[in-house]
Each structure stands twice: as C-alpha cells, then as structure tokens.
Write a protein that binds this DNA or RNA. Structure first.
Length: 397
DNA sequence: TCTGGGGTCCTAGGACCC
DNA sequence: TCTGGGGTCCTAGGACCC
C-alpha cells in the first residue's frame, strides 16, 4: 500500500481518483448467493469456447485469470464454481456504485461497469486530504452496495489507474507529485496504457522492460521506432498525461457478435445467425434512439483468421430488415461456400441521433419492438423467401 | 490452454473534389 | 498530353482496453 504521502489540500485539488471494483462480476454473484462467499467463483462463458470474465480471489489463488479459456480454468481449478454472466445484475449494481461516485465528484468518467475516474477538484473543498477522501469513498461504496472497491489517487489519469491496480485488493494507493518516478520506474512496460502484447514485444527487442527503461531514452527514438504510439508511451513513461476527466462521450458504434459452439457451415444456419445479430443491433439502436449509416459484418473462420466487410448506406437505418439485408450483401462478397465459420458479427456505425420529434412520435407507438420480433418468427419458420424485403417492412424508413 | 463480447483509436490506400 | 497538392470520405486491418 505504498507509497502514501501527505499532500497539502491546495496541492491536490487537481488530483484524479481512479476507482476499480474488486472482482466485480464474481462479487455481485456472491452478494446474490451468500453461500458462495469464500469459494472460488468463476464468472464466464460456460460453453466449450467460453472465457473467464471475472474470478474471485479464492479462484485466483489457483491461477485463474480473466480472458483465460474456461476449459483451462476448469482444469487448474477443479473445485471452481462456474457461473454464466448476468449482465443485467451487473449493470444494476454498477448504477448503485455510480451514484456513490457522483456524490463525491461533479465530474465522473465511467470506463466500464466496474471502474471510473473522478476529478477531485470539487471534492478538495470537502475533504482534508486524499487518504481521508479515499477511505470515505470505499466506506460508502461498501455500505450502499456491499461491494469492495480499490482506489488510486494521483496527479493524472494514467498514474491514478496504475495506483488503483497496485491497491488491489481492498486498498488505497496515493501517488504524491514528488514521488512519481519512484512509483513508476520499477513497473513493467505492460503497465503503460496502450502497450499490449505486440508493443511489449517491440519494446523488449529494444531492451526495454520497465517504465524506467522507457523513460531513460529520448522520445524521438521511440517515435522513429514505433510511430505515434512511441511518442505517447514516451510521455506516459515520464508520468505525463494531460487527458482531462470528461463525462461520457456519445458512443460511435454498436454491434453484436457470437462465437458458435460449433462452427457454422450450412447457408441456412449462417442466414439465421446473421438475422439474430441484425435484430440485436437494431433493437439496441432503437433503445438508444440512434440510427446508423454504416453496417459492418465480421467473420472469423475456423482457423481464427478474421475479416470484415462494411458498407455505407445513403440513408440512416435502425431496423432489423435493413441491417439484415445489408449484412447479407456484405457476406455475399466473401466467397464462403463450405467454409467453417467460428464467429459472426454485425455492427452499426456512423451513428446519429434522430430528430427529437421523430423519436417522441415513434417510441410512443404500441408494438414498436414487436414488429421486428414478428418478422423474425415468420422468417425462422418459413425461411427468407416468405418475406419480401422492401415491402411492408420499409414503412418505418 | 486455445483463444468472448463490448468497444475505441490508428494507419494506409484509393476515390473523388477543387 | 502529362500531371500538382491538399482535403475528405470510405474501407480493411490491427492493436488495444475492460
């Protein structure tokens, strides 16, 4: 839990707090079923191709990590309790946690269901110092949700996020402005935001293993070696990060994808899957009150190679039929005969909000979402030929 | 061990316009 | 007949994050 240092209140008004829930999905499951407490709980896809999304600390003792194939997790943690994710429950808990965050800062930027940045400018007037604030935040989150959060406080986002990671589980780490190098230098390059497996390999080849190593070489050298990524990580390695905490930005794309338990080969199966995905995307567009102009289809083959095809339409759409029709055409551009398909995805981008008047008028219509459902059922039962696209479906365009 | 599902951002080439 | 430079949009792929 080091390094913790006392900082004068005037100095920490520009600090940023990063709050990260401990084993969030697994913890929510345990709250819902207290008999699971103290046991190795593993949340993830339970099918043969699933991966772990969250593991309790008891499960982590066996080496279980997120993104690990569930089959592997079963092998190394035979006594594990495997649970299919229930995102509805996680979203609900996330809202409760979020309301606690909102009571501590006027500017909260959620990164996902289980973590957020808080700008502490408004909080600095209410709290004497960062440790007291962090303690109070942890306490409130626990009292109001029963969940444990780890907290990092630092002069910028990058450092705050690294601090909360070091704080886990159930801790607080505060990085004082004068101790940034000391904090940063020993950490692996993988800790740099934007350094994944590939970039880490490149850095490794340059003989750079720690953030301190990266900070010691000129930014220009890194930029020449790796382009703009090099410039970014050169800055981060020196502890520089000027990104402000900003409230949620509008989303730029919405998609749905599925990895099939068994690869798809039959044209009818593929069409059905594409329709289901198109419908999911369309429903979500309408639920968010947006429409899309670009549709992208994603295909992952049995050998894991992945390809995409996209098309930008002349008009915006938000209905199952239109998305499906476009998706079918895109898929037709890939010669798929007898190809084994592991994953299919459909996504919509170039989103725009509908005019408010249109939204009000249409959202109020009874059976708004049932129209697509009915179309779906007809199609599933009688096949594509039963429906002429462009006939009655297009009434909504 | 064999690789989910939701996203964002960046790059690079080609089309097209002025 | 040969050929500029800048800007924007579209498409495909890839790295990365949680």
């Amino acid at each position: 839990m080091t390094p913790v240092a006392k900082v004068k209140s005037s100095a920490w008004a520009s600090s940023i707090l990063h709050a990260d829930m401990d084993a969030f999905y697994a913890s929510v499951e345990i709250l819902g079923d207290p008999a699971l407490a103290g046991k190795p709980v593993i949340v993830g896809g339970t099918s043969s191709r699933g991966v772990v999304t969250s593991a309790s600390y008891e499960a982590r003792k066996f080496g279980v990590r997120s993104a690990m194939p569930t089959t592997h997790a079963r092998r190394i943690c035979p006594g594990g309790i495997f649970i299919q994710p229930n995102f509805g429950a996680y979203s609900e808990k996330s809202r409760q946690v979020r309301s606690v965050f909102d009571s501590f800062s006027h500017v909260v930027e959620p990164l996902s269901l289980d973590e957020a940045f808080l700008d502490l400018e408004s909080a600095a007037r209410m709290w004497p110092n960062p440790p007291t604030l962090a303690e109070a935040l942890k306490d409130q989150v626990y009292r109001r949700t029963g969940l444990v959060v780890s907290v990092g406080v630092a002069p910028n986002k990058f450092l705050a996020k690294l601090a909360s990671k070091q704080a886990k589980p159930d801790g607080i780490v505060i990085v004082a402005p004068g101790r940034i190098e000391e904090f940063l230098n020993p950490i692996s390059v993988r800790g740099l935001w934007g350094v994944g497996e590939q970039t880490a390999n490149v850095l490794e080849r340059l003989g750079l293993r720690t953030i301190g190593d990266v900070a010691a070489i000129p930014a220009g050298t890194l930029e020449r070696a790796m382009g703009s990524v090099g410039l970014t990580i050169a800055q981060l390695a020196r502890g520089n990060d000027r990104r402000p905490v900003t409230a949620e930005a509008p989303c730029k794309s919405m998609g749905a994808e599925e990895t099939f338990e068994q690869d798809l080969v039959e044209e009818s199966q593929i069409a059905r899957a594409l329709l289901k995905l198109s419908d999911r995307v369309a429903s979500r567009l309408r639920a968010h009150g947006v429409s899309a102009q670009t549709i992208t289809v994603k295909v992952r083959f049995a050998n894991f190679t992945t390809t995409t095809r996209s098309h930008t339409l002349r008009h915006e759409i938000d209905n199952t039929a239109g998305i499906y029709e476009t998706a079918v055409k895109l898929l037709g551009r890939l010669a798929l005969s007898r190809t084994r398909i592991r994953l299919l995805g459909v996504s919509a981008s170039k989103l725009s909000e509908w005019p408010a008047s249109v939204q009000l008028g249409l959202k109020g219509l009874p059976g708004w979402s049932r129209v697509d459902k009915a179309v779906d059922q007809v199609r599933m039962r009688f096949g594509e030929s039963a429906l002429g696209f462009g006939s009655f479906l297009d009434w909504r365009d």
